[in-house]
Write a protein that binds this DNA or RNA. Sequence first.
RNA 1: GGCCCGGUGGUCAAGAGGCCUAAGACACCGCCCUUUCACGGCGGUAACACGAGUUCGAAUCUCGUCCGGGUCACCA
Length: 551
Amino acid sequence: MNENELLAELLLPKTDKQPEYYEELYPARNIPEGAKVTRVAPSPTGYLHLGTLFTALVNRITATSSGGVFYTRIEDTDKKREVEGGIADIIGGLNRFGIAIDEGFISGDSEKGEYGPYKQSMRGEIYRCFAKDLIKRGLAYPCFCTADELSKMREEQEKLKVRTGYHGEWARHRNITYSEAKALIDAGKPFVIRLRSGGSESRRVVFDDVIKGKIEMPENDEDFVILKSDGIPTYHFAHAVDDHLMRTTHVFRGDEWISSAPKHIELFRVLGFKQVKYGHISPIMKLDGGAKRKISKRKDPEAAVHFFAEEGYPASAVIEYLMTIAASDFEDWRRVNPDADYKLFKFNPKKMSVSGALFDNDKLNDVSKIIISKMQSGAVYSALCDWAKEFDGDFYGILSTDPDYTAKMLAVDRDGVKNARKDIAKWSEAKSYFAYYFDSLFVPDYSTPERVSPADAKTFLEKYTSVYSESDDRQAWFDKIKAIAPEIGFAAETKEYKAEPEKYKGSAGDLSGVLRLAVTGRTNTPDLCGIMSVLGKEKCAERIKAYINNI
RNA sequence: GGCCCGGUGGUCAAGAGGCCUAAGACACCGCCCUUUCACGGCGGUAACACGAGUUCGAAUCUCGUCCGGGUCACCA
């Protein structure tokens, strides 16, 4: 054995597999030409965040568009930051948003697929095997520096105004010999394994980012850590080993990774792996005061995807909105395919924005309104109840008191209508939106519309009450309003009023405004005729009476 | 500070030297339609960060400035 082999045995004595073993264990995937293999590799240090969902979506749609595979891998190499239940929350969240997972973790505690294990903490031997191989080939070595020594070194570098980091002359253990290492190990000193970088700051690495295009940077020359002192790999090393062995073709990840791409590229090279393609995604931003900044899980409630569930945005609305950010040509496609599943959209990473998009709540609302407006009342009923059950128990109690009534209420202006209303954007708005259907939520408004005096309103409502019949269809219902209009100085037709406004006090439209106010306490509601028929004659009469008595 | 990435209306964005008098969507405003509210239709306000250069011609190419973001860990 030569010195390097001796060192490898000394450092990782129990690791006995060769890289070839894993290469054979995880053969090239049998997928069509051009199919892309992508993944999302969350670290269970918190709950599912918007950025992770967005990244997952982009990876998912890339795989789907190319007939490839999308898998999940858990990056739990940092035990200190791990959060209980994190995996279940993240994977469960992905599931709820309809991000189909072909392989890897499909729930909080189960995985499937031939390329596992899909949790990094279960892959220790694999990393060690590749690290050992690097040591044997003289491309990695142990470093015994303590955190303290490292920070002293850093201070010194800062004082000298040289680039900080463990590189070149500063790489203290770079030339450590077998016997030196052995002495330190025998003395019980902990160590990490560092890459012996062959890079130079004066040379450039160039890579073609599938989103951002050509990126050119100085080579990595840092002897960065690949195996931590507990034998667990750093992100960089795990990324190279895992994505190679799992036969990933494309890695879409947050653009905060751009700066470490040279490290990754060097790793792929020394390990003899085929370089994966990178697509660096710009972060979703948020306006804070006047400044744009990356959405933060600490400051912004919408950073945690849970927020959208609480607000009651349909999961599909959030995805639809994210798609509009992900692909600039998505909305064009949507116009042509208004009802198609977004998964059919052919995603082209070149159409992704290179600068970070500001999270636009107005746009989300609009997208969500469109989605809800297209739902039939049955679907609205179950989605609304599901939401209320979880987030607004009182409202759920109200909704479920009389399911038939609730169903009828939701059908107004929805089922069998050509152009459905774009009204509510999220279920949390429903309570106030539908308030007038329930006495416990109803808030009367005893004002009158602009062109209608309280006296006329009273007269109109008194006349109207005597002729109203619950069985009136829309036409009959409105004919009755029109019949009364001329009796009190209002035009029966809007056109008549507009033609000769001085001749009338207003039009039948204004009078229906009175009726609306009396019955619903609102100036803005869906089809009033439909509402009144759901409410029932008695309830309507009661509200009208109260209104008359109070204006 | 070094190194990267970016900068077109309030927001998302189209744009690959002449087709730009700069598309479309959201928001906002107006009009039309309309029983109300919507939907829909039509229209409007509003942008190439700045400065040099290259070119007959620049939103587009180059350089500089400014501004924003990211990153410089035994975190991912």
